[in-house]
């Protein structure tokens, strides 16, 4: 049995454990939330180091991307530095491959998106591959990075503007405590008091894409007929989306034991299967392994 643990800054209420087989290898996959406590996450990673096959970082990204530049979050680097023996991954290596494939699949196989489809990508710098794929599909893309990470009611329209903004803001913003940029712990369970300010951007879009916690925290009560393209949803989240009137739920990672885990979990599994150092793994390695694993996005009609 191989062991993968996802250490998350998210709520411990979402903790889960599942066993699954990948290419004939049995994996025990566990998620451990630290309720936004960065010090507890550091301690947990130190405890797990050398005892499990790979560690995923959930509820936090280490690397953000925009326009060919990579920006490292200071708190994410702190967590990475806690493990000396076991590979630690944040999902960003795989996201770039998996999420592009998911968008292409929705366009070519399912015909759910195409030129002119209005998409609200709640945060693009943590999913730049998805943003590029949506733009390449001709979607009318609004990126919500400023709205949902900084509370500023300014929609970023297109990748050029996103790249320009990222250059100005991210070198400094990535130094800020992570909880100031992203909902962690209990905040993940609460609706934002400023949610109404952004409702029109949800209303205008046919597809709401990206980080599920941002979607959940800021979405208006009704999402009738919308397509949600995300990952990391639990069975309870699916029911909540159904009640909001969502038509299609698409997760870029497959369903395991009734939920879609984050890309950090899947990347941790893949790093274990590849048996290479994380920094030696290429996008081609992920593409080839994804093909062998025959992973497809989960597509579920909810209404």
């Amino acid at each position: 049995m191989r062991y993968v643990v996802s250490v998350s800054l998210g709520s411990s209420k979402r903790d889960h454990e599942v066993t699954a087989a990948f290419l004939g290898e049995d994996f025990c996959i566990k998620r451990q939330g630290t309720d936004g406590d960065l010090a507890r996450a550091e301690e947990l990673i130190r405890e797990l180091d050398g005892k499990v096959d790979a560690i995923g970082l959930g509820g936090i990204d280490v690397y953000l991307y925009a326009g060919g530049e990579r920006y490292a979050l200071r708190d994410g680097l702190r967590l990475l530095a806690c493990a000396k023996l076991t590979p630690v991954v944040d999902g960003s290596g795989l996201k770039n491959t998996l999420e592009r494939q998911a968008v292409r699949y929705l366009e070519e196989e399912e015909k759910l998106i195409g030129p002119g489809t209005k998409v609200l990508l709640v945060s693009a710098v943590d999913r730049f591959g998805m943003a590029e794929a949506l733009a390449a599909a001709g979607c009318d893309l609004v990126c919500g990075d400023l709205m949902f990470a900084a509370g500023i009611p300014y929609p970023i329209r297109g990748l050029e503007e996103l790249t320009r903004m990222a250059k100005k803001l991210l070198p400094e913003m990535t130094k800020m405590p992570f909880h100031m940029l992203y909902p962690t712990g209990k905040k993940q369970e609460e609706k934002a008091v400023t949610a109404a300010k952004f409702a029109q951007f949800f209303d205008e879009a046919a597809v709401i894409a990206g980080d599920f916690h941002f979607i959940r925290r800021y979405s208006p009560p009704r999402l009738d007929g919308k397509i949600i393209l995300t990952n990391t949803v639990t069975a309870a989240d699916v029911e909540e989306l159904r009640a909001q009137g969502v038509k299609w739920l698409v997760t870029t990672t497959p369903e395991l034991g009734g939920r879609s885990f984050g890309t950090n979990v899947l990347e941790a599994v893949m790093v274990t299967l590849l048996g290479k150092r994380w920094d030696e793994i290429t996008a081609q390695d992920y593409t080839a392994l994804l093909a062998r694993l025959q992973l497809k996005p989960r597509i579920e009609r909810l209404n």
């Binding site: 400023l146 900084a150 509370g151 500023i152 250059k167 100005k168 803001l169 070198p171 400094e172 913003m173 800020m176 100031m180 940029l181």
Partner: peptide
């Protein structure tokens, strides 16, 4: 508030950032 502190930081980066 943290939200206001972030906004002030943001303004400064918008006008002085690279």
């Amino acid at each position: 508030t943290e939200e206001d502190i972030m906004r002030l930081d943001f303004i400064s980066l918008m006008i002085w950032g690279e």
